[in-house]
């Protein structure tokens, strides 16, 4: 089962115009979006599909107030869809759609869809850095930052779910869909990666009561920490509320910056996540501020040391 990761996350929202404004400000590209919503794409074609909560084309809502309606997973080939259908049909209803994709639900009622991935291969350099002792990554005269440098989300990275029963969730994704646990924050839950993706995690669970089941956050990969901070700074300047960050997580090593959103969950920019293979031994750490980040910053308005140039200040004027 070569599951690659989430292609799309589908939301049924309370305030569609606000959500459209938000997804655009976040740097996703509307594709065929109209007054009923639509797809907002990262550079590789993964993204968020948003519609008004009453839209009849949406999958059924969760039993909670959460606005997540469906997680659409991309798989490598049609043969993987056949394997998933064979496995999950053993104990649940799996619907085969006209385009070959599959619809079903996990053990806790999260709606799932599997499709031959729609993501496009990206050919772009990562953020380049120069450091003593290592070959320069940027050529002479190649500058690192400029005011209007691009900083667009590249790919849908991961989704984090509030789940009532972690053991049940981990069992379903690991034993039925061949996800692997990379690390665990004890007291919160495990990080998982699917078989056909070497990212530290595309899925993370946080244990919660039943009435909170839903999406805690979702994240998009950026080209590096600088792009993450440039995109986040632009978002805050546009008025969006920062929630947590910027900082760098310990498990996964990814840079992070989380923001509030009108889609009922946080949106995260992440960058420079660890890669793993099957030789990795999972770690454990107790959930808490120390385990969850190596560094944390808080944005402030741009400022520079030193007073204003002579004569430009508001100080008392000489008589």
């Amino acid at each position: 089962m070569n599951i690659i990761g989430p292609d799309y996350l589908i939301f049924g929202v309370d305030d569609l115009p606000a959500s459209i404004e938000y997804l655009t400000a976040f740097g996703l590209k509307p594709v065929g979006v109209d007054a009923t919503g639509g797809l907002f794409e990262a550079l590789d074609g993964t993204g968020i599909i948003v519609r008004a909560k009453g839209d009849p084309s949406l999958p059924a809502p969760l039993k909670t107030a959460n606005m997540l309606r469906q997680q659409v997973y991309g798989v490598a080939s049609p043969a993987d869809l056949d394997a998933i259908e064979a496995e999950l049909s053993k104990d649940r209803r799996v619907t085969r759609l006209a385009d070959g994709s599959l619809e079903t639900a996990d053990d806790q009622g999260f709606a799932l869809k599997f499709q031959t991935t729609k993501r496009r291969a990206l050919m772009m350099p990562a953020e380049k850095i120069n450091a003593p002792g290592a070959p320069a990554q940027r050529a002479p005269n190649e500058i690192g930052v400029w005011e209007d440098m691009p900083a667009a989300p590249r790919s849908l990275s991961h989704v984090v779910l509030f789940v009532p029963d972690i053991a049940k969730a981990a069992d379903f994704y690991c034993n039925r869909l061949q996800f692997v646990i990379t690390d665990t924050l004890v007291g919160a839950g495990p990080f998982l990666r699917p078989k056909a993706n070497d990212d530290h995690h595309t899925l993370f669970f946080i244990r919660t009561p039943d009435y909170m089941q839903g999406c805690e956050h979702l994240a998009f990969h950026m080209g590096g920490p600088t792009e993450l901070m440039v995109a986040g700074t632009r978002l805050v300047k546009s008025g969006v509320q920062s929630f947590w960050g910027p900082g760098r997580h310990k498990f996964g090593s990814n840079w992070f910056w989380y923001f509030n959103s009108p889609l009922g969950c946080h949106f995260e920019y992440d960058a420079d996540m660890d890669k793993h293979d099957d030789t990795w031994t999972p770690r454990e750490a107790p959930m808490g501020p120390e385990a969850s980040q190596i560094v944390l910053f808080e944005m402030r308005e741009k400022w520079a040391p030193g007073g204003p140039p002579p004569g430009a200040g508001k100080g008392p004027k000489p008589e």
Partner: peptide
């Protein structure tokens, strides 16, 4: 900034988890 209400304007909303 100042976007504290739900879509219908009937409630204050937390835009972390709704």
């Amino acid at each position: 900034s100042d976007a504290y209400l739900n879509g219908a304007g009937t409630h204050l909303a937390c835009h972390s988890h709704g």
